[in-house]
Design a protein around this nucleic acid. Structure first.
Lengths: 267, 267
DNA sequence: AGCCGCTTGTGAATGCGTGCACAAAATCCG
DNA sequence: CGGATTTTGTGCACGCATTCACAAGCGGCT
């Protein structure tokens, strides 16, 4: 049966609790610090993972400017969070800071990359070479390099074989085969909404476990598949909500002010 | 002073408490329903707003298929959430359901649209007419119509004046003027990261209160400006994290299985 | 009319994430 | 070498969001 798309919230997975992931001898092999992190990985909150990615980008910017160490305060303001949150986020992946000093930029970079799985390259396939798909394909390895685009798909016969961003477009029918043989890890869906579910099914069939969905539909996927969605319309509508809310507050403030002034009060 | 980008989480606003949203005559069928909702609007959790937008889309799909009423259960599964959450989300905007029956599709649609501020059209400007900006400009009023793109900007002199999606491209310098005169409500930043902050400042200068940022930078904006960001790289890295996590679990499960089998246990 | 079954709306409980505040640690300096 | 200073790491408390579970309410059926 098809499970429902998980979207930053419901954790009701069949992963159960499984508190016994760690090996029996807990302190048996204490020499290294890595195994602890390996245990901890499972417990990093999703929100923290997203922020880790932000820290990583900020760090790379700092490294370019020759920074060697960075304090939690600096890094936090640069990333737009408060320092306590940053430190807690970092504590999920281990303790790589030096008290009284800060963090070594390159150490932290490497550790975050490791936790995010960026040491291995994740191959990406883009499906739907329309306006958006075109843009994605031309991103060329995607920012931060580590996500090479290794397959493109579309239904349009006129597009098949045409190279986009240096890669020929294949037909959607070939998704399962090509994804399987090229070991695609992440599928990006940039098709019209009507086609998205079918495309997604083919991706899953091809062994893709992670999907980034730009189509405005709720995808149904088996439980082991991770879906993230990026939805333009929804982002705009959220902003619209804030516009409306602010306009409303402004109105009510104005009426309140009017009322107050008619009462002779000072605003 | 520049406030930091808020990003789906910190709600530390002066929203106060105001617990009782009074519940006078429920079935009193007071001619208007607007005022009550107007009070409530402020207290809708951000996460719920995002889901309301999803419900809206699902509802419009159902309306097209001729559905008149829908139960919370149906709507919930179609939207990929559980029904309790859906009902609570809807309860934030009022009580428009009929017990024992469900919700009228069109009533619910209208009410959600009203809360999200979609009754008024929000004018959009797109800055940065590269691959992505091109795609955005060609979206043509954006999905769900209600977000007309009314201005395009870029630095490239070769692009100035060229119509993209039926709209001429203006120079970035003119952002403040044009946004102000055309009453742009939402600015979309699709520039390279280096230019994003300057563009954002100009948008704010032009009176834009809401920004949708595609550039991989943390924007600094004054407190009254709402920023939402869509970051490809971060989405991919989050997926990458899940790939790594799953791979790891699979490995540890395998080693566990190996250990178990070597112990003669049955897995 | 009155009962029955169905579905909503919501109080209460639970869980999770955030922010605070402080102890622990490390460096620097006298 | 010891104290002052700085900054990390984290226990704790708070608040928000999710989920549960059930009473309230409505339509249909007899």
């Amino acid at each position: 049966m098809a499970r429902v798309q998980r979207d930053g919230g419901d954790d009701a997975e069949p992963t159960a609790e499984l508190p016994a992931v760690r090996d029996q001898g807990p302190s048996a092999v204490n020499g290294r610090k890595v195994p602890m992190a390996a245990d901890k990985v499972r417990s990093i909150p999703e929100a923290a993972v997203a922020r880790l990615a932000v820290y990583l980008r900020v760090l790379s910017g700092m490294a370019e400017q020759g920074a060697v160490t960075v304090s939690s305060e600096e890094l936090a303001t640069a990333a737009g969070v408060n320092s306590a949150k940053l430190r807690k986020d970092l504590s999920y992946i281990g303790t790589y800071g030096t008290r009284g000093v800060g963090y070594e930029v390159d150490v932290l970079t490497v550790e975050i990359e490791r936790v995010l799985g960026l040491t291995r390259q994740q191959k990406v396939a883009v499906v739907g070479i329309g306006n958006l798909g075109h843009a994605l394909a031309n991103y060329g390895g995607f920012p931060g390099r580590g996500f090479p685009v290794e397959a493109l798909f579309d239904v349009d016969p006129d597009l098949i074989g045409i190279p986009v961003g240096g890669l020929p477009v294949n037909h959607i029918e070939d998704i399962p085969d090509i994804c399987a043989t090229r070991k695609i890890a992440i599928g990006v869906i940039a098709t019209p909404p009507a086609a998205a579910q079918a495309v997604c099914d083919r991706l899953v069939e091809g062994g893709v476990h992670c999907v980034l969905n730009f189509a405005p539909v709720v995808l149904q996927v088996p439980g082991h598949v991770e879906v993230r969605k990026v939805d333009l319309a929804i982002e705009l509508q959220i902003l619209s909500f804030h516009v409306a809310r602010n306009a409303e507050q402004r109105v009510s403030r104005r009426t309140a002010a009017a009322r107050a002034s008619s009462n002779g009060e000072v605003v």
